[in-house]
Every structure is written in structure tokens, then in C-alpha cells.
Amino acid sequence: MHSERKRSRKKLWMRVLATLTALLVAAVAGVCLAYPSVAATTCPGCYGLTEFDGHEGVYAQDNLSAAQRSQIEQVVEQSRETIATFYGAQTSSPSLLICLTESCYERIGGGKERGIAVLNRAVMLSPRGMDAVIASHEMSHVELHTRLASGAEVPQWFDEGLAVVVSDDPRYLRPEPAADRCLISPSGPLPVTLEEWLSTASKDAGTYGKAACQVSRWLREKGGSTGLLSLIDRLNAGAPFATLVESP
């Protein structure tokens, strides 16, 4: 009798374990299907990417030519140097997932963009984003949010405008040492949330330029990166962004 009860309990626990395992597998599969970019940054190897020799945290496709490998090395080194130079040091260490074919980028969840920061911990670059400007733009997002404490926030226009300034993107700013680097000035409020930004930027190609203009002018008044680091400290101390930076 005792042995029968023991076997019954064992069978019950085996069923429970099998059910939990099935649920876990289904949940993981659901994430992979719904959010492939999140899954890819968690397990690059699961999506055909391998760690790039000599660069920890950098993942790319196999069978690259010598020219392609050289291009990746230059982009990684230049973008990291850009971030470290502007911020004084690079405190973040995002994984970099680099695709040199569109099929690869689609497989890891990429879309029409040149590059994208994922969960403020990784950066994905498409074949169209394989240059230091795009890479440092996305890495600036990760660096900023790494430095911001939990609860400290900046509006999306500031985040995007700062990334343009840090990456020194010539599409949206005049080159240094222009007194005013703006190519287009904001004429009204800029998007505050990510959802608002994506909606506005998709309709108005000048949105990045307007945000970059506002941020570049603010940085010029506040002493450049010194002013930014001071802003981050005050935000981390609990000061609201609206009391520190005038919105357009």
C-alpha cells in the first residue's frame, strides 16, 4: 500500500514537471517568435552569429572576407572611441550584433532601420548601418541609459538628439567648429515618448535634425559633455528633467 502511494506521488510529480517544462518551452518559443531581436541578443549563436575574434561581445556572421573583417574592426573601434571621448569613458558594454546581409538582419528581428539599440543593453547593425556614425548613435543610447539611475528619465527628443550629436552625424548637423550647427530648428514641441517619436519621425524626416539642433544648442550653453554629465548627476539625484532643460 505504501509503495503504491509512493509510485502515485512520483507519477504526479513527473506529470507536474512535464507540464512545467512544456510551459517553459512554449514561453521561450513565444518570445523567440514575437521578439526575435530580444532572443537574438540573448543568444546570438542561436541565430547564426559567432563572437568576433579579439572583440568580446561582438557577434557577426561566419565566412567573412578579409575586407569585411577589417570593416567590422574599424567600425567597432571607432564607435567605442567616439563614446569614450564624448562621455569621458565608456561605462556600458553593449553586445554588438552585426549583419552584413539583409537576410541575416531580418533573421535577428531587424527591420528597415540601419541599426537599433535593444533593451538598452545591445546594439544590432544592418548592412546599411555598418559605419561608425550609426554604431555610435545606437551605442550612445545604451551609454546614456546605463548612466541614468532607475527612475531617472529624459524625453525621447533629448535621447535622440544627443545620439546625433555624439555620433556627429553630418545628415543632421553642420560640422564643427560652426557656431550654430543646426541645419533645421525646431518650430514646436518635439516628441517626448518613444511611441510619439516613432510616429513623428516616420512622417517628418527633419525630426532628427530638430532634436539634434535643440540638444546641440543646449550643450553649447552648458559646456558640452561636462554639462551633460552634470545633468545626469542631477537627474540621478531626483531632479525632474523639465526643471533642468527647457523643452522646445
Rank of each mutant, 00 (worst) to 15 (best):
V75C: 02
M139F: 03
Y87Q: 08
R174L: 15
C99S: 13
L64C: 08
T146K: 13
L119D: 14
R107F: 04
S136C: 12
V31Q: 08
L23Q: 00
S65H: 06
L33Y: 09
S187C: 00
G111A: 14
S95Q: 12
A239D: 13
I232M: 04
E113N: 12
V215H: 15
V76G: 05
D169R: 02
E77V: 13
L198C: 00
E196T: 04
E138F: 06
L198A: 01
E73I: 05
D168F: 00
A132G: 09
G57I: 10
V166P: 03
R147I: 02
Q71L: 13
N63M: 06
V76F: 01
P94V: 08
D204F: 03
G224M: 12
C32L: 00
V164Y: 02
R128I: 04
Y105M: 02
A26M: 07
L228Y: 13
I98K: 05
V166W: 01
L190I: 04
E73F: 04
W218N: 09
S202W: 07
K6I: 10
M14H: 01
A152C: 09
T21I: 13
L148W: 07
L97N: 07
L12W: 03
S230M: 07
V215F: 14
E176W: 00
E81G: 10
T50N: 09
G48Q: 03
Q61K: 08
C182Q: 02
L235H: 10
C99N: 05
L33N: 00
C43M: 03
P177F: 00
R220Q: 15
T50D: 09
G188D: 11
V142D: 06
W13G: 05
L231T: 11
C46G: 15
Y105P: 00
K10T: 11
T85D: 12
E77S: 14
D131K: 15
L228C: 14
K210D: 02
T243S: 13
D204H: 09
Y172V: 03
S185V: 02
L23I: 09
R69L: 05
H137F: 11
D168T: 07
S8D: 10
E196Q: 15
W197R: 09
P36M: 03
I108C: 05
P175G: 00
L144G: 06
C104V: 01
H145W: 13
M1W: 08
S65I: 05
A122P: 10
Y35L: 12
A205K: 12
E4H: 08
R80E: 13
S79C: 05
E196L: 02
G115V: 10
A242Y: 07
A84P: 06
I108L: 05
E143S: 13
K11D: 08
I98A: 05
L228F: 13
S92M: 01
